[in-house]
Design a protein around this nucleic acid. Structure first.
Lengths: 340, 340
DNA sequence: CATGGCAACTAAAACGATCTAGTACGGTGA
DNA sequence: TCACCGTACTAGATCGTTTTAGTTGCCATG
């Protein structure tokens, strides 16, 4: 409970016998002070354990030292998908060598998300944001560029010229890798159980799947809400038909595990009678039995790359261009096999 | 890219024909303006879509409008445990009706964590923090109270008088619930696979288990690093003995799933030959086969309660007292049964 | 020797709020 | 009538920085 008065650049200035302006120059590596004075000032700052006041800095319009992440999912289901935690961990890793912080906020709708960006930006609370789950003609990106906020998108293809740069994962190629593998295994009836259609990657993956139709493959996409219950329902329905699919692909691993449980409850052998695969990997996918064949997308690295891109975007006046993130690899485990 | 100038209380003052001081009074519900003027000012503020500058507010020493959470785990393993995501989701839910933000930061050590708290506090970046994974004589709590920072602890028992309030889960009782149930099922050899000993809950749970010794129960605690690999190793070792345990309890569900896989690879029937249980629940625990008996601790609600406590702690000058959080319930699923 | 230019500084405004001290005005009581 | 009080305000200091516009003193140049 010691008052523990803040040490400010005024204190440093007094001790060094110079003006606060000089101290500011010295601390920010700006010309305007001699090397000798700079060294002296830095030494004093270090001795006093001076910490910049981010509030004051944000007030004068320089850096807030914070980036923002808004997540548009119901709070209760956040923990379900490994994607977010991995992404957040990656972001943190991207920030680890800096003193930049991360603001996290859950929102319930796109409008709320935009309002949040407005608040963050106009209150100078964050220097930039990472936007996830891009949509077509995304109103968030329009709002962000209109208010002049820095942003980096995490998405499935490069962004249009002039808009916020994207770190993208070649989702089309990834989908090809997985579906082509199943076809090569001899599967002729493939179902894809996915999340809501407003997510870009959903339609993209479904598109790749349906390109197989002309080759005589029976394909089908079932839309759910990402929940394990809906995934189980859909699986049960598919497997109750007279003409069952021989392979089912899930959008994430929680749904895949739910599907796996249904096969066991129905006594359908995996992978002998049915192959299962997921577009998302996690520790669990390797631990269930049979372990699940997955596309391993390094979400961690994705977050790290996006963060570094955002940090340089914040420092640079002109908009950067998109980069491609880590390429997903196919991790074949026990849940897939040749079609019977 | 429109400049989109900030609207400040000065703008409001000009339009309302009063001083900025009056506007500040009006906006903060303070006496000093007539009701009529207050209404006019509020209306104008609303029309202009005024947002307070948190930077300016933080600078004058009132609220930063942000709370902080530091997580001391390696980034790559963050996603493994559902605990964090659930806690974070709960915190978010506790903040949802406010405009308070959350700062998240991963740290690599206790010292780094303390340094972070120092920085946050002296830079006025956060109004308070939520401290997790309390230890005995926790240096973090000493540091926090010494610098006069507000904090709330999430832990397993009420905190000492005068220190930061704790939202605690009665871990001892929870452990009793689980272990006593196993004993009632007839289990005589019970093993507990847990994480590092510096976590308070680890020793607490192990303590409860070993209280069974006098009753003729064979108990054993094996310490790991929370990883699925170590958990699998430990399980394999236990099950390779001539005198196997008849029940194994894991500290979290990822370890439990890893253990379950080992039983399957070794051809040991669960629950006929061996019962498995976990101290932590998640969606996955209910989806694997056999589904896992777990202590269901509402981590979400825990985070929510802690957040609300912190928010009122921030507003109140005197330290609040600890509250007990949601009581864990035993969720019996398929992985436990009577000892053979 | 006057002039200009440069380096190394200083002084002070600015950012957007909060908060304290002060003022103007109307009403009340003696 | 005068002192006094309360209400509704205003003016201006304050927080800790950054940044702009000077101000020195020194040196080189014509």
């Amino acid at each position: 409970m010691t008052p523990d008065k803040r040490v400010t650049i005024t204190d440093i200035a007094r001790l060094a016998g110079v003006s606060v302006g000089a101290v500011s120059f010295a601390l920010n590596d700006r010309p305007g002070v001699s090397d000798e004075t700079r060294k002296r000032i830095l030494a004093i700052a270090h001795d006093l354990q001076w910490q910049p006041s981010s509030a004051a800095r944000a007030l004068v319009g320089s850096r807030a030292g914070v980036i923002g992440l808004a997540v548009n999912r119901p709070a209760r289901t956040l923990g379900t998908e490994a994607f977010f935690t991995d992404l957040i961990a990656g972001i943190q890793s991207g920030l680890s060598s800096t003193h930049v912080g991360m603001h996290l906020r859950l929102v319930a709708s796109i409008d709320e998300e935009i309002a949040l960006y407005r608040r963050w930006h106009s209150a100078h609370q964050v220097d930039g944001v990472i936007v996830i789950d891009p949509r077509e003609d995304d109103p968030r990106l329009q709002a962000l560029s209109q208010m002049g906020a820095k942003a980096v998108v995490v998405g499935s293809h490069p962004s249009a010229e002039g808009s916020a740069p994207t770190v993208w994962i070649d989702d089309a190629q990834a989908a090809h890798t997985l579906f082509d593998y199943l076809v090569a295994l001899g599967h002729q009836r493939i179902a894809y159980i996915t999340g809501p259609a407003e997510f870009e990657h959903t339609t993209l993956r479904a598109g790749v799947l349906h390109q197989l139709d002309p080759r005589g493959i029976h394909t089908e996409t079932i839309i759910t809400d990402f929940s394990s219950e809906r995934a189980a329902d859909a699986t049960r329905r598919l497997l109750s038909r007279s003409e069952r699919p021989t392979a089912i692909v899930y959008d994430n691993d929680v749904m895949a595990v739910a599907g796996l449980r249904v096969t066991q409850e129905m006594g359908i052998g995996v992978p002998e009678a049915l192959s299962l695969a997921s577009f998302d990997d996690s520790v669990i996918a390797g631990l269930v039995r049979p372990s699940l064949t997955c596309l391993t997308r390094d979400t961690f690295e994705l977050g790290e790359t996006a963060t570094k891109l955002l940090l340089t975007q914040i420092d640079s006046p002109e908009p950067l261009s998109s980069t491609s993130g880590p390429t997903p690899r196919l991790t074949v485990r026990e849940s897939t096999g040749a079609a019977r």
